[in-house]
Amino acid sequence: MDFVKNTLAVFPALLQAVPVVVQLALGAMAIALVLGLLVALARISSIKILRGIATVYLEVIRGTPLLVQLVYIFFVLPSIGVSIDPVPAGILGLGLNYAAYLSEVFRSAILSVEHGQTEAALSLGYTPSKTLWKVVIPQSFVVSMGPIGNYFIAMIKDTALTSVIAVTEILKTANILNSQTFQTTAIYTAAAILYLIISLPLSRVVVVLERKARASG
């Protein structure tokens, strides 16, 4: 029973890292939602340059590992005079990365809103842009709810990657503990369980959100 006792003993230290994880996840998600929507709109816009920029952004982000992007922001940008602290750098890196994936969620959700509703809005006197913002985008949010939730959970797990850019989140905290006490099994088991404790309830929430979205649609 030593193993269980040792594992439980690690939790208080690891819990210290949870506020940082929350900060990373919420901050990055805010960036990803706003930027993701903008990229999605750029991708379906009739302006060629906007479409081009958005496509390049998407390909660069999806074609390189998140770990490399984080390292780039934290270690390479200072060489051109842009130094960012670990936590903001982590928020920025995660946010820019997930924006690309969320933009695809938004884009397909926007395109999935039936044309009939767009025509109804136009026929009622909505301008094209008002139709987009008042009719199409609100509905695409409903459709996107589930996928956004799933990406949010994935992002929480990806916060572990920011340990390489000196963010003292759960994994980094575990690493530090391990170098002090060498209770490797107990420490990393506790870390894994902590991620589970965070993500399992969120998964349930996502399932409920998806069911709600389907019911109103």
Partner: peptide
């Protein structure tokens, strides 16, 4: 006012 064959209500 325009009324469509397929109603085209706002589903949300």
């Amino acid at each position: 006012g325009f009324v469509f064959q397929h109603f085209n209500l706002f589903l949300n």
